[in-house]
């Protein structure tokens, strides 16, 4: 890994999450091998890599859905909110009922105030009484994210958040996510969409075969990736990503 992944990053005052040496095994298969990183408040971190790289496994460990076989996760500023790839909500319940249910389960202090806040943030107040199943995929994803934000987490984990959305829905989604980061929420998202990572992330964490290969800024990645003949160092990001993986034997 070009940037340290196994060593514990130096902790600073703004740090919202720190993961060290995370390892996960499924039977004989090593899904994640000693991956580590840290992210600060308001930072947008993209986890990218080919299929089977371990992106979803990493997020599920950070979310507490699975338990790591080795490694630690430190959350100095509070809990994490998790938004799964597929909208995890009840399609027969209304938008408000979904938010109210999860707010009660999260044991938030003021359930109704949290529901109202999320309805405003998602811009779905006028559809509060519509059943979630009747909403578009983009709007369902916004409720999905809103549910993840109900507990006002310091870190929000998004697993492939734009999958299945059309360009307009994707644009509105990222506008919403950027707004969250602007308000100080650390956002860690996994994606297959390299261009999306380049466009919205401040940092990227590259995984392949469960191993952390790179942790740093887009500019640092361009510098680290081998350049093709006749191409500038800051050329096409997707091509650079492919060459980077090839250089590391993936």
């Amino acid at each position: 890994m070009d940037a340290p992944s196994t060593a514990s990053p130096t902790q600073n005052a703004d740090e919202a999450i720190e993961a060290t040496g995370l390892t996960k095994r499924f039977g004989d298969r090593l899904a994640l091998r000693e991956v580590g990183f840290a992210a600060t408040a308001g930072e947008l971190l993209a986890v990218i890599g080919p299929n089977g790289a371990g992106k979803t496994t990493l997020l599920s460990l950070l979310a507490g859905i699975r338990t790591p076989d080795a490694g630690t996760i430190h959350l100095p500023r509070g809990e994490v909110g998790f938004v799964p790839q597929q909208a995890a909500l009840y399609r027969r319940l209304t938008v408000a009922e979904n938010l109210r249910l999860f707010a009660r389960l999260e044991e938030v202090d003021d359930v109704e105030a949290s529901v109202e806040r999320m309805l405003v943030q998602t811009d779905l107040a006028d559809r509060r009484d519509d059943q979630a199943g009747t909403l578009s995929g983009g709007n369902q994803q916004r409720i999905n994210i809103a549910i993840g934000l109900l507990s006002d987490p310091a870190v929000l984990l998004l697993d492939e958040p734009s999958t299945g959305l059309d360009p307009r829905q994707r644009s509105r989604l990222w506008e919403f996510v950027l707004g969250l980061a602007g308000r100080g929420t650390t956002v860690i998202f996994s994606t297959h969409n390299i261009a999306e990572a380049e466009r919205y992330a401040e940092r990227i964490l590259v995984l392949a075969d469960g191993q952390g290969l790179f942790d740093g800024s887009i500019e640092a990645f361009h510098a680290a990736a081998p350049t093709a003949a006749g191409e500038a160092a800051a050329g096409d990001f997707e091509s650079a990503f492919v060459r980077f993986l090839a250089e590391h034997g993936h």
Partner: peptide
């Protein structure tokens, strides 16, 4: 099927 199981059992229930 509603993908809610993982969300519920990651600490809520």
């Amino acid at each position: 099927e509603e993908n809610a199981f993982a969300r519920l059992t990651r600490g809520l229930v």
